[in-house]
């Protein structure tokens, strides 16, 4: 439970009902066209409902990004749990997922029925080509200066080649590369205790 802090009068003192949590997240789930879900979540959770402070939300986001799974559903689980335990977490995640799922049932049925129609196939070719551009832009934006840092490229390029080109399984790639990458970013305190690694190339 988030403890109400004295100098943060905006944070709700009593947790909302499970129904209220579901409605709030379902509203995000139905209105968030075009991605950027985390920003929608912040608007509702912090600014509109005052369920979390900005700092608490960032904390939830950091956990959500570090753990596997979708960032948006992870944040929903964490916020829901803080508010109302397991039922709150379930309400938040389902609220976020169900509306889009309903839309996709309709889109999916239309797709299966009409995707061989030449007009539909042409429109879909345009849509798919656009989605690639969208994915590339997000990658470039998130990657940013990482693409210029040799230390990061040391992991970006092998990951791309292993998974993208040679179809090494994702599990194998992660178990091979992640421990090395995490060790290279290990806490400073451990680096000092290990003078043998003081000549490591990173910083």
């Amino acid at each position: 439970m988030p403890q109400p802090i004295a100098n943060e009068p905006n944070v709700a003192a009593s947790p909302p009902s499970v129904g209220k949590i579901f409605t709030a997240f379902a509203l995000i789930g139905i209105s968030s066209f075009g991605g950027g879900l985390v920003a929608y979540l912040r608007d509702v959770v912090v600014d509109r409902e005052h369920w979390l402070t900005g700092e608490e939300f960032l904390g939830a986001l950091e956990i959500g990004q570090t753990l596997p799974g979708l960032n948006s559903t992870n944040v929903a689980i964490i916020v829901g749990r803080k508010l109302r335990g397991p039922r709150g977490a379930a309400a938040a995640a389902l609220g976020l997922i169900l509306p889009g799922m309903a839309v996709l049932i309709v889109l999916g049925l239309l797709y299966v029925r009409f995707h061989t129609n030449p007009d539909v196939a042409a429109a879909l070719a345009g849509v798919a080509a656009a989605a690639v551009g969208l994915l590339l832009q997000v990658t470039l934006k998130i990657g940013g200066r990482s693409f210029l840092r040799p230390k990061d490229l040391m992991f970006i390029i092998p990951t791309f080649l292993m998974v993208g080109v040679f179809h090494v399984s994702l599990a194998a790639t992660l178990f091979l590369l992640a421990p090395i990458a995490i060790w290279l970013n290990r806490p400073e305190s451990l680096k000092k205790k290990a003078p043998a690694h003081a000549s490591d190339p990173e910083r």
């Binding site: 950091e62 990004q65 570090t66 798919a128 989605a131 690639v132 994915l135 590339l136 997000v138 990658t139 998130i142 990657g143 990482s146 693409f147 990061d152 490229l153 040391m154 992991f155 970006i156 390029i157 092998p158 990951t159 791309f160 998974v163 993208g164 080109v165 994702l170 790639t173 992660l174 590369l177 992640a178 990458a181 995490i182 060790w183 290279l184 970013n185 290990r186 806490p187 400073e188 305190s189």
Partner: peptide
Amino acid sequence: PWRDAVQRGLAPITIGLMLAGVYAV
């Protein structure tokens, strides 16, 4: 401090995977 290490360590791997996703689609 390991939370930060995990997040910073995985970041370039995630970018590599996203690039592979661009290629796959």
